[in-house]
């Protein structure tokens, strides 16, 4: 199977196999008009198999916080004129807004619908986030 290289855009590489669609949804890539390719279960020396997302849009701005939360192993390659001009390694973001929802039925976010659901990183080692309102824990399991 052959997918053309992109000339200008972003390649999300080293996505843990199976998480490609989740990244696609969280980044709202379905709203883009440009060509987007999701490659699943691509053979990888380092990971055995991986997912890749290619987005052919030179002016795209991605929410790296979301990417870091979903899969901190991802590499973001910025492509210009067919060449990779920048490689970014994402990490767990300090804060997430409207990425995860608080599941505590007693949390103020359950009654005040317009409040943003904000979680802050409480433990980087274990990837634990806590709701800023009620301290309820959200682990990184997706």
């Amino acid at each position: 199977m052959k997918i053309d290289s992109i000339k200008d855009g972003i390649v999300l590489d080293h996505i843990t196999a199976g998480r490609g669609m989740r990244i696609y949804q969280l980044l709202h890539l379905e709203e883009l008009d440009c060509p987007v390719a999701i490659l699943k279960n691509v053979p990888s020396k380092k990971m055995g198999k991986k997912d890749i997302i290619k987005i052919s849009d030179a002016d795209l701005h991605l929410d790296f916080a979301v990417i870091g939360y979903v899969d901190p192993e991802i590499t973001v390659n910025v492509i210009r004129e067919g060449t990779c001009v920048e490689k970014k390694h994402v990490e767990l973001p300090e804060e997430l807004e409207n990425v995860i929802r608080c599941k505590n039925p007693r949390c103020i976010t359950t009654t005040e619908q317009e409040l943003p659901h904000i979680f802050r990183l409480a433990d980087r080692h274990d990837g634990i986030y806590r709701c800023i309102y009620c301290d309820t824990k959200a682990s990184r399991q997706l």
Partner: peptide, 10 residues
């Protein structure tokens, strides 16, 4: 005082 957790923070 509020029954919902986090209301005073808001």
């Amino acid at each position: 005082r509020h029954p919902k957790e986090g209301a005073p923070y808001v």
